[in-house]
Design a binder for these strands. Structure first.
Length: 644
RNA sequence: GCCCACAUAGCUCAGGGGUAGAGCACUCCCUUGGUAAGGGAGAGGCCGGUGGUUCAAUUCCACCUGUGGGCACCA
């Protein structure tokens, strides 16, 4: 087997350590068949010296080969990519004249963008899906073809696929390109692909239609996009659909309505009306944050909401952010509602003369901001036009950036943990294209932040070009109870704004110096953070956060008086309690308050009234605990305390 | 801002060219019941707004507003 004629024998090593020799060229199909018919049937592609390629790729050199089956990590992407192709074929069979543009694999599935005069609608999906199943049943062989670039352009133009021709035209001249053919249908594609459409199986589902700009640019025409999800088997598909339903159950807009926390209405688009319970939650968070700020050496301030445009012109906001600012004409002046607090904080800093001994100066504000967000961006509490920021700006020397960064990271980690978030990711964003300040200043700011983040021992990923217009930043991203990520906290180094607004301090040398300005937030906006908390906890808040902590429910009217006394006691110790002395059965009350996600139910009947006890039932449990009232009151004070 | 869909009672939703229906919630009556729905009765609506077609529009059409899902945006 070994020393065959030169160039026409190849040695293939397999993952189990064995190797086999074949006449060259050999394909994955032949190798799989050689190993066993079961594997041949399961084979989707091969991993050739670490690269995923088609099963039919001809191997002409010694190589390590792994047969990829549905069980492998890579299989999902293959399946999803094929699903996109099968969908495009189905669409073009059903709707002749529709152009296919791009169709990549995405998280959980795939999409394909089509160009068609009349956009697809939701009702088209079942029809397309049906045709896809039929194409899978046809089990068309999927064949790779290599074409000359110019010929491919000519071909796609001829068949009316102008977008494909445009994509190919962007490939450097002279390069070959690959096409994949399945039956009559052909598509430009890098591959790899499954050997035939039958291998796709049927564990896919078309999810929704949407508009999408050609090449992601709002200046271009809008295409019609169809999203699908695709999995290894039915079970995985079901699990994914269940996960989506779970996210829907947690939707803060739905829970916010159920729990009567807030509402929106047409006269104030994107601006929430907080109801008593929602505002209680809001205030609890504010009180908690205020305490943490105090512990961390911040001074709280309050600044105006409406300011003259001249300030915004100086700060650069008028130019860089003007289109997002609410404006009004009054008494011959143009005023703008603040979208951020930073210029105001510099005004506070600029009062009087500061010594280097005053630094770092940490100015915090629960700052009410308004931004005119595009209508299509609004989303419940997650993206609003009016919000309260837990904002602060630290004025310091460049040397103080590192210790301040460390201290901030510690503060932020503790706060997130108190609120139930243990998993925090960090992104480092550097200079954006549109920015203020010279390259030299940006070099310094980026270097300073980088040194600080490393000195603080933070693990981060790079997010190039995503910095604020005045400086580089860190973003802090939380993972919630069902694995979704939310960007909340931010830490930004700014050498630009102190310059623009002429902030300075007197150094040890008696000379004027520019302070560095560190912009920071932990919640981001209270609105959005509360939205995230609602979804994270599914509205079942820990006791200290719950806006309604206890309901005292009576069994018969004999206990009404005792129940009222309990309510008074709870009011006195600052526990949010409600009395339920309605003429209803106790099981009815239990059901209703459980649905309302009340953490603790104190049930009182004749027995409790006589013995001065309460029967305690907790949300999510049917166990009952009986405690003397005074003990129960002490216990609930303890349990409802904010985390230290 | 762009594409598609949607807008009916406080809430969740059904209906459909001849001025409306369910469940829950609400009010009243009966019931005082020991841990996830006791029974009965009643009230509740400019069918998002403005125009158009029609003998007749909540229903069909157009525009507007808002909401939802995406796209773009997120300093």
């Amino acid at each position: 087997m070994s020393n065959g004629a030169k160039n026409n024998r190849v040695t293939i090593s397999l993952p189990d350590g064995s190797s086999r020799d074949y006449d060259s060229p050999v394909t994955g199909t032949e190798i799989a068949a050689d190993i066993g018919p079961g594997l041949l049937k399961a084979a989707l592609a091969i991993c050739l010296d670490g690269d995923l390629v088609d099963l039919r790729t001809e191997i002409t050199r010694n190589a390590s080969v792994e047969i990829v089956t549905v069980k492998d990590e890579d299989a999902l992407d293959l399946l999803r990519h094929d699903a996109a192709h099968v969908m495009a074929q189905a669409v073009q069979e059903l709707f002749p004249g529709t152009q296919a543009t791009i169709g990549p694999v995405i998280e959980n599935g795939f999409f394909y963008d089509f160009a068609r005069d009349e956009p697809f609608v939701e009702d088209d999906l079942p029809i397309i899906e049906e045709r896809m199943r039929e194409i899978v049943k046809r089990d068309l062989e999927v064949r790779r073809e290599v074409w000359a670039r110019d010929e491919a352009i000519k071909y796609f133009k001829k068949i009316g696929e102008d977008y494909k021709a445009e994509i190919i035209a962007d490939i450097p001249a002279g390069e070959d390109i690959t096409l994949y053919r399945q039956g009559e249908w052909i598509d430009l594609c890098r591959g790899p692909h499954l050997p035939s459409t039958g291998k796709l199986g049927t564990s896919f589902k078309l999810m929704k239609v949407a508009g999408a700009y050609w090449r992601g640019d709002s200046k271009n025409e809008m295409l019609t996009r169809i999203y699908g999800t695709c999995w290894r088997d039915k079970k995985e598909l079901e699990a994914h659909l269940f996960q989506l339903a779970e996210a829907e159950r947690r939707d803060h807009r739905r829970i916010g309505k159920q729990m009567d926390l807030f509402h929106f209405q047409d006269e104030a688009v994107g601006m929430p009306f907080w109801h008593p319970k929602g505002w209680t939650l809001h205030r609890t968070l504010e009180t908690y944050m205020r305490r943490e700020l105090q512990k961390n050496g911040y001074d709280e301030i309050k600044t105006p909401i409406l300011l003259d445009r001249t300030l915004w012109e100086k700060s650069g906001h008028w130019e860089k952010f003007g289109e997002h600012m609410y404006q009004m004409e009054m008494d011959g002046r143009t005023l703008a509602v603040k979208p951020m607090n930073c210029p105001c904080h510099v005004q506070v800093f600029n009062q009087g003369i500061h010594s280097y001994r005053d630094l770092p100066l940490r100015l915090a504000e629960f700052g009410s901001c308004h931004r005119f967000e595009p209508s299509g961006a609004l989303h419940g509490l997650m993206r609003v036009r009016s919000f309260l920021m837990d904002d602060a700006h630290i004025f310091c020397t460049e040397d103080q950036i590192i210790p301040e960064t460390k201290a901030f990271f510690k503060m932020l980690t503790k706060i997130y943990k108190d609120l139930g978030f243990e998993d925090v990711q960090i992104k480092f964003s550097d200079r954006p294209e549109v920015r203020a300040g010279s390259d030299e200043v940006w070099d310094r700011a980026e270097a300073a932040l980088k040194e600080a983040v490393e000195a603080a021992g933070m693990v981060y990923t790079l997010n190039p070009g995503e910095g604020a217009f005045y400086g580089p930043k860190l973003d802090f991203i939380l993972r919630d109870a069902i694995g979704r990520d939310w960007q909340c906290g931010t830490w930004q180094v700014d050498f630009v704004l102190p310059e623009l607004l002429d902030a300075n301090y007197i150094g040890e040398d008696g000379q004027k110096h520019r302070p560095a300005m560190l912009h920071r937030a932990i919640f981001g906006s209270f609105e959005r953070f509360i939205g995230i908390l609602i979804e994270h906890y599914e509205g079942k808040f820990p006791l200290w956060l719950a806006p309604l902590q206890v309901v005292i429910a009576t069994i018969t009217s004999d206990a009404d008086e005792f129940a009222s006394q309990i309510k008074n006691s709870l009011d006195e110790i600052g526990i949010h309690a409600k009395l339920d002395i309605r003429n209803e059965k106790i099981s009815y009350k239990v059901r209703e308050h459980s649905h309302a996600r009340v953490p603790i139910l104190w049930v009182v009947g004749k027995r409790e009234a006589k013995e001065k006890t309460v029967s305690i039932r907790r949300l999510g449990s049917s166990e009952q605990q009986s405690l003397p009232l005074d003990k129960a009151l002490l216990a609930i004070i303890e349990e409802a305390r904010m985390p230290e």
